[in-house]
Amino acid sequence: MLSADAPIGVMDAGFGGYTVIRELQKLLPCENIVFFGDGKNQPYGNRSREEILCMTRQCLRFLQEKKVKAVAVACNTISTLIEEYQGEFPFRIFSIVRAGSDEVIALRPRQAVLFSTVFTAQSGCYQRYIREGRPEVRVIPQGSPWLARLIEDGDFDREKIEKELRQTLGEAARSHPDADTLILGCTHFPLVADLIRQLYPQFTRMVNPAFVQAGQIKEYLEENHALRAGGEGSLHIYTTSDCETYSRMAEWVGLKKPELVELAPAPRMPEPSL
């Protein structure tokens, strides 16, 4: 049986997962949340499948030690591989890719641009999930190798960010002018959604999977009578990167003030094959 007082875990390759925490705190203000952000190894989307799985399992074991009752995998790249690890842990793991796909299925666009890391775009995971529910929807993948890293730096250098957007998303927008739906397939990307709207107003609908993922977690906890009753929820942040940056960005994103921001050991890379 799930403990109602146990925290919800959130994990991401960097502080992009704050966009998921923001939605959870709006929807479930009484819940305690433990966040693990592997900023040191970010972006996962530029790494190999073996590296991603090795680091992901270490992140999940860290949250298991915190006795979480459920985990939101906020990283789209990590979520594309969920079938590889979800059965290895004693808690329910929620995929942000599945959440985003469910939202696209509900919207029923003719064309949707998937804007994500290169790994997520090439995985075909969004395309497969959406095809299962709406085979008529055309999903156009567009990966960005550096946007998540530029956002993770925390200084929001508009010139660099705009250049990366024009070189990546700009290509998809020009090639598919009739596409009006944009899937923000990386949790960092909603943090620059306003700039994307300014540059590419053709995307009149933006899918933020974090909103749907938070709703799915609430529904799961309700069904299992595991919602925390009363009180104000706490937020503990663990990062493998700079604690000062993570604390500052938590305030910038609009999160409730964390009770703890602490440096955590970074996941180790897999040993090279001989």
Rank of each mutant, 00 (worst) to 15 (best):
M1F: 07
L2H: 07
A4G: 07
M11T: 14
D12R: 07
I21L: 02
I21S: 02
L24E: 02
L24G: 01
L28T: 05
F35T: 00
F35Y: 15
F36T: 09
F36S: 11
G37Y: 14
K40I: 06
Q42G: 04
P43T: 09
Y44V: 09
G45H: 02
G45M: 04
E51T: 14
C54V: 07
T56H: 05
C59L: 03
R61Y: 10
E65S: 15
E65V: 10
E65L: 15
K67E: 15
Y85A: 01
R92H: 13
L107S: 00
R108G: 03
P109L: 01
A112D: 04
A112I: 14
V113D: 07
L114F: 07
T120I: 08
S123E: 03
E132Q: 08
R138S: 12
V139P: 00
V139Y: 00
Q142G: 01
G143M: 08
P145H: 08
W146H: 12
L147C: 04
L150H: 01
R158K: 12
E159D: 15
K160H: 03
E162M: 04
P177F: 13
G185M: 05
T187K: 01
H188F: 07
L199E: 13
M206V: 00
V207D: 03
N208Y: 00
N208W: 00
P209V: 12
P209L: 01
P209M: 00
F211A: 12
Q216H: 14
Q216V: 02
L221W: 07
A226G: 08
E232T: 15
E232D: 12
I237D: 08
I237C: 14
T239L: 08
S241N: 14
M249Q: 15
M249N: 11
P258W: 00
V261H: 01
A264M: 09
P265G: 06
A266S: 15
R268C: 09
M269V: 07
P272L: 05
